[in-house]
Design a protein around this nucleic acid. Structure first.
Length: 636
DNA sequence: GGGCTGTACTG
DNA sequence: CAGTAC
DNA sequence: GCCC
DNA sequence: GATTG
DNA sequence: CAATC
């Protein structure tokens, strides 16, 4: 029986291994084999908790019957309408014993190389920096400059021949920066970079300045002002590969465990040719590879550590799950098994339809809290997003999986009339609009919104004045716009760097990853998801260090400005996440920041979860459950 | 008809 | 426990 | 609302 | 999908 | 096999 179980799990992973990338409505994920390997019980899963498995072997029925629990009675009070069905609680058999048997050598090796003496020289003596601006600096900037100096940076007080690098505040444009410089000086041949370059170099070793994100805003070339470097001819050269996340334009060339490939990678790794897809991009690929390689040779823990590497964590069986008989499962319909078609939303001919369908979903979310109907509309919209052609007729629409008898005619209606009566109806209803508005506040959902509307409130201001808001809701209202503003990818990095910096001061061994849409390669994100882990560490240790040291420090620094949820210790459970808000130095907009405490053992599963997206996770978990397994953020 | 992911935090 | 969020 |  | 007619 | 649950 135990072996059957094991086999099932093996198969589950094998299937996953066949995937090149994941389905995602917006972006493509470079499925890191890292995550998969991490989750995979290293091939020969020895009797995972098998004793605990045995007793409950009877049948799936022994596992939480909650699955069939009746929907609780719905009361008439608006606020109480349609509560979610209680979810099954898992029987958990947490194993904290059983140390990882085989650390991957890969990792061990990497480890070694990674350890850099604290005060290593980062900037070679021939470099000379001029910072722009070089007065009126924020304390953060000043300390960064100090730090740079400690690591070998030579500073110039003003422009001179000696200057090799002009470092411009990341928020400044090129023209702004030039005004700071003497007119006559023509910084030809001098490298212009933005501040990020220095910060990243400090944290991770000298960065290649010839990268997009180090460009001064408004500059055309990557580096030298008037030097037209031929490397800039291509429209979008290397972007983020040292971030090791989804490569926006082409298939990910780099291995997910690049450090292992060493030089050989660029030569004749069969893996690479397998990945080769775009003949025209050959040179680009080569260049990118070289760049990537350079980074790897320098082998900084680099941002690579921020997001992705091969953690070689291993999974410890956590759940007592049932293996009843069960035959084979056809899985033609799991979106988690599809590649992402990368149909850029901007170019999707069904754009309008998608938007309206999503609005329909919003209605059911906020108005009637009908999660299933809302879900159906969202899935239908998502299905349309995957179409390459305009879907104009009911017949066309009905063929698409996820679109049925009710939505199909709506699609035709939208395409022919440009509008949807049902939606107009709702939009003309001020009560509906107010409900939707209210439920957009952080901490307010459909039920609360409906209750407030029913009580006669119509504006956010009303709520502030007359309603007993929870602290979180108050923050949600105060920063309503902030929290709805998308976060540019570059800013996500900034937040990540600040956290990472503080992290390293706390304990060099702590590692962090940025997850969420950032990790999926999105050009912008709704919030910032950060996973913190440490080799060999458990949840308690990480939670403690983060809550006792990291968070207070970041608060004191003014970076963390709000705490929305931080959990509390109980007899049995250690808090596993922190949610709050952060602000970049010198800025005013608050960003939603989530920090997750991830035990080393669970890194793989945690990465899967926190990389998402929603649809992907749900699909993958559903797939697991059909196989009589359960997947969550802790493991399979 | 019955399922639709599975969990954590707040009040 | 319901509501909300991830 | 969709799917099985 | 299972049941029903 | 389609309609129904």
């Amino acid at each position: 029986m135990a072996s059957q179980r094991r086999k099932a799990r093996e198969e589950f992973f094998d299937r996953l291994d066949q995937l090149d990338d994941l389905s995602d409505s917006e972006t493509q994920l470079d499925t890191s084999s890292g995550a998969k390997d991490a989750l995979r019980p290293d091939s020969t899963r020895r009797s995972t908790r098998s004793k605990s498995v045995k007793p409950s072997l009877q049948k799936a029925a022994s596992s939480p019957q909650v699955l069939t629990a009746p929907v609780p009675p719905v009361t008439l009070l608006p606020a109480a309408s349609a509560p979610g069905r209680p979810t099954a609680s898992l029987k958990r058999a947490r194993s904290d014993a059983v140390p990882p048997s085989s650390k991957l050598k890969r990792n061990a090796k990497r480890k070694q190389e990674t350890v850099v003496p604290a005060q290593a020289l980062i900037f070679p003596p021939e470099m000379c920096f001029l910072f722009v601006p070089n007065r009126g600096l924020t304390s953060l900037q000043q300390s960064q400059i100090d730090e740079a100096e400690k690591h070998g940076a030579r500073l110039a007080a003003e422009f001179s021949k000696n200057v090799t690098h002009i470092v411009v505040d990341s928020n400044w444009t090129l023209s702004q920066a030039l005004e700071e410089l003497p007119d006559k000086c023509h910084p030809t041949g001098i490298t212009m970079v933005n501040w990020t370059w220095v910060v990243e170099s400090l944290l991770y070793g000298l960065r290649d300045s010839d990268q997009h994100r180090f460009r001064v805003k408004g500059a055309t070339g990557t580096t030298s002002l008037h030097q037209t470097s031929s490397t800039d001819k291509r429209p979008a050269p290397s972007t983020d590969h040292d971030l090791m996340v989804a490569e926006p334009k082409q298939r990910n060339v780099g291995q997910t465990t690049p450090q292992k490939n060493g030089r050989a990678a660029s030569e004749a790794d069969p893996e690479l040719s397998r990945n080769e897809t775009d003949k025209n991009a050959q040179t680009d690929d080569q260049d990118e590879l070289d760049l990537l390689q350079k980074e790897m040779d320098k082998n900084d823990p680099a941002i690579e550590d921020l997001m992705e590497h091969d953690p070689s964590s291993k999974f410890e069986g956590n759940y007592v799950i049932e293996q009843s008989s069960n035959g084979n499962l056809e899985h033609g319909s799991f979106s988690c098994m599809n590649k992402n078609e990368r149909n850029r939303s901007s170019s999707n001919p069904n754009q309008v339809t998608i938007r309206l369908l999503n609005q329909m979903a919003e209605i059911y979310d906020a108005n009637t809290a009908d999660q299933w109907r809302a879900r159906a509309f969202k899935q239908a919209a998502s299905a349309l997003a995957r179409q390459k052609e305009l879907v104009a007729t009911e017949e066309q629409a009905a063929k698409i999986r996820g679109i049925g008898a009710s939505i199909a005619p709506k699609i035709e209606e939208i395409v022919t009339k440009g509008r949807l009566a049902r939606l107009d109806e709702a939009n003309n209803d001020p009560l509906h609009k107010t409900r939707v508005l209210f439920s957009r506040v952080y901490g307010v959902g459909g039920a609360q919104a409906a209750a407030w509307v029913a009580a006669g409130y119509t504006t956010l201001d009303d709520l502030k004045r007359y309603v007993g808001l929870t602290p979180n809701q108050r923050i949600g209202i105060e920063h309503f716009d902030d929290f709805e503003t998308r976060i540019p990818r570059a800013e996500v990095v900034q937040h990540g760097l600040i956290v990472d910096h503080a992290l390293k001061q706390t304990d060099q061994e702590l590692k962090m990853y940025i997850g969420g849409s950032f990790r999926r390669g999105s050009p912008d994100s709704g919030d910032i998801d950060i996973l913190i882990t440490k080799e060999g560490a458990g949840m308690e240790q990480i939670q403690t260090v983060v809550m006792d040291t990291l968070i207070p420090q970041l608060k004191q620094q003014g970076f963390i400005v709000a705490e929305l949820a931080s959990g509390h210790w109980t007899d049995k459970e250690t808090p596993s996440k922190w949610m709050g808000a952060s602000v970049l130095p010198g800025q005013s907009i608050w960003r939603r920041l989530d920090i997750l405490f991830v035990p080393w053992e669970e890194l793989g599963a945690a990465l899967i979860y926190w990389t998402g997206n929603d649809f992907f996770n749900r699909s993958l978990r559903l797939l697991a459950s059909r196989k009589k397994m359960r997947l969550n953020q802790h493991g399979l």
